[in-house]
């Protein structure tokens, strides 16, 4: 009885493990599948699971954004592309084994480098002593993000005078506007490029 009562289970770590395994596992599945539609499906699952990691890290808004734009928008676009360019059903393209070996060796070296770097700094390794006690204000960032986009950094009001934080007070208004304009230009450009004349009998399904 006392054992049960004292049984403390870290749900944060558990769900981190769960989502991390899903994310990495499906990312590897994307790599090792040759069927393009299955790749897209695994990519959906991998990105969705990484949205779960965002939620766990307290970034609710970014997680929802990831689900909405990445998974609900970009990947639908990708699958559209797959359907429009499929020559025959379930087409697969084989990669030569030499390329595989080379890519995997280089990738393994890169992974080793990144993993070494990830555990290099002590502060990164230790973690928060008591994540359950992070205050309410820190956990609810949506309003702060919104104010940040309109050029007001409400999270930095208490920075001491003369510190580097104060210079960041201007917020993200200019980048926000630039990104908006950039997005508009890109969408117009993409629509223009995709509209070029089709050659006869090249289209599988009419768009």
């Amino acid at each position: 009885m006392m054992l049960l009562a004292a049984f403390d289970f870290d749900w944060h770590a558990f769900f981190f493990m769960f989502f991390a395994l899903l994310t990495c596992g499906f990312a590897l599945a994307v790599l090792f599948t040759s069927n393009i539609v299955r790749m897209a499906f695994y990519l959906i699952l991998s990105l969705g699971a990484s949205a779960g990691l965002f939620f766990l890290a307290g970034a609710e808004f970014v997680g929802a954004m990831q689900l909405m734009i990445y998974v609900g928008g970009t990947l639908v676009l990708l699958i559209f592309g797959v359907m429009l360019t499929a020559q025959s059903r379930f087409v697969t393209m084989k990669t030569s084994s030499g390329e595989w070996v080379m890519a995997l060796v280089l990738g393994g070296a890169l992974l080793f480098l990144l993993l070494t770097a990830a555990f290099r700094v002590g502060d990164w390794r230790t973690g928060h002593p008591n994540p359950a006690n992070v205050g309410l204000a820190e956990s609810k960032t949506t309003t702060q993000i919104g104010m940040g986009f309109t050029g007001v950094r409400v999270d930095k009001l208490d920075a001491p005078e003369g510190s580097t934080l104060v210079s960041g007070m201007s917020g993200y208004l200019l980048p926000f506007v630039i990104v908006s304009v950039h997005l508009l230009v890109v969408l117009v450009g993409a629509a223009y490029m995709a509209r070029t004349k089709r050659r006869a009998s090249s289209a599988g399904v009419g768009a």
Partner: peptide
């Protein structure tokens, strides 16, 4: 109890579209 509930619901509803797409493509 989510602080971004509206956004979350819209986002997840957007994912639902994959079900018909995958079903349609995989049916052959």
């Amino acid at each position: 109890h989510m602080n971004t509930a509206v956004f979350f619901i819209l986002a997840v509803l957007g994912i639902e579209v994959f079900s018909p797409i995958l079903a349609g493509y995989a049916s052959g």
